[in-house]
């Protein structure tokens, strides 16, 4: 993550906006539930990641654990977005 701070900051900005919190209140170990983001907020966040980074996020709300996109914590989401951005750049 250190080599790519901008993605991290941009993801945190999106999550913070969705959670109606300041960016420094969003910790990497926090879950979306802890941040008060519900299922609609999650879907809206994913849309925001796709728009922000021009990526396509594989996520089905019916089976979140089966999806390639890990949403278990803020750090996991940052990692998943970084992976998708890297894949896009490699393509």
């Amino acid at each position: 993550m250190a080599e790519n701070p901008s993605i991290r900051d941009r993801v945190i900005a999106i999550i913070a906006e969705q959670a109606v919190l300041e960016r420094d209140q969003v910790g990497p170990e926090m879950s979306l539930t802890e941040l008060g983001i519900d299922s609609l907020g999650l879907v809206e966040s994913i849309f925001a990641f796709e728009e922000e980074f021009d990526i396509s996020v594989p996520f089905n709300a019916n089976e979140p654990s089966e999806s390639d996109f890990d949403i278990s914590s803020v750090a996991a989401i940052i990692g998943a977005v970084e992976k998708l951005v890297a894949e896009k750049e490699a393509a």
Binding site: V43, I46, F47, F59, N60, A61, N62
Partner: peptide, 20 residues
């Protein structure tokens, strides 16, 4: 599609492996 509630393969109501 945007709501992410749709299945890409089949409609399997009540089945544990249903996916939309």
């Amino acid at each position: 599609e945007g709501l992410r509630v749709m299945s890409k393969d089949a409609c399997r109501p009540f089945s544990a492996n249903r996916n939309g």
